[in-house]
Design a protein around this nucleic acid. Structure first.
Length: 279
DNA sequence: CTGAAGACCTGCCTGC
DNA sequence: TGCAGGCAGGTCTTCA
């Protein structure tokens, strides 16, 4: 399901429903997803006081403050993989297909995690040092922050023969750019996805930085992409798919010229581009 | 170090 | 209708 915009839309939806909720119980219906699930028992009686995002990870911050006493504040880290979904439903609602974990709260609601392919994963870590965890310590900048700029991208591209598309999808370079938005950003910037990263001018890399920011921001604004099974927390679909210029449009007309959109395989993934507009 | 390929797992669509 | 094959948004590991 998710690239950065989808995760951000899920984060907003969950925050609107779950802040201040106290955990009554957590049930895991299996021992692992991609990795073994953590022991959730430290979260018992704790309240969610913030829901944040870093890269494509959701971070649920708990208070550490319960009737049993004070505990070190914990952060529940969750990655949705390809098909993970969170839904907030009344406790009485029966489990759906592929529902692997549920959190029951004090107000009668429950948070359900569903994930058909089980590429998702979760971890529980101390709030004051989650950034030191292996999942985070080598991540690149957030694409929508000022820290991601042309100087940063240029430094990673220098001397690299790897295709630019592979490079912008590398989380050590910049986080959150997945297969869909990489394709869309490269189209906007007029850069061919197979072009060697080290052979692109600073000016064109600047255009790419701008295109990534514009593309991701527009997708968040639109409520995420409705590709396949992406749904928001309340079950409504995202709408960004209606705005795709190249992704999933092999053989169709380019939106800017008379050429047909092409598909190639890079690093085992489909890449879509316009042979006239991108070089 | 770099870059490519395979691995994880299930569902859905296409074509025979 | 049934079934094989290809494909899917992400990351991590392995190999040359």
């Amino acid at each position: 399901m998710p690239e950065l915009p989808e995760v951000e839309v899920v984060r907003t939806g969950l925050a609107s429903l779950l802040l201040g909720r106290k955990v009554q119980s957590v049930t895991a219906f299996r021992a692992d997803l991609r990795y073994p699930l953590p022991d959730f028992s430290p979260l018992f009686e704790q309240k969610i006081h913030a829901i944040r995002r870093r890269s494509k990870y959701l971070l649920f911050d708990f208070t550490g403050d319960t009737e049993r006493g004070e505990f070190e504040a914990q952060t529940l880290v969750w990655h949705l993989g390809m098909t993970g979904q969170f839904h907030v439903l009344p406790k009485a609602t029966s489990a759906g297909a592929h529902e692997h974990v549920r959190f029951d709260f004090d107000d009668g609601s429950s948070l359900r995690y569903r994930d058909a392919r089980r590429f998702g994963y979760a971890g529980l870590m101390a709030t004051n040092d989650w950034e030191k965890h292996a999942w985070f310590k080598r991540l690149g900048p957030e694409p929508l922050f000022d820290e991601f700029d042309v100087a940063c991208l240029l430094a990673h591209c220098h001397g690299r023969k790897a295709p630019i598309k592979t490079l912008i999808m590398d989380a050590h370079v910049v986080v959150g750019v997945g297969n869909i938005y990489a394709a869309e950003s490269l189209f906007l910037a007029g850069i061919h996805p197979a072009r060697a990263a080290g052979r692109i001018s600073k000016q064109r890399l600047q255009a790419l930085v701008d295109a990534i920011k514009v593309t991701l921001a527009a997708a968040i604004q639109a409520g995420g992409s409705s590709i396949s099974d992406f749904v928001q927390v309340d079950g409504k679909p995202g709408y960004f798919a209606h705005n795709f210029h190249v992704y999933g449009r092999e053989g169709e007309d380019c939106t800017h010229c008379d050429a047909k959109i092409r598909r190639i395989i890079q690093a085992g993934r489909s890449s879509f581009y316009c042979p006239m507009c991108q070089h």
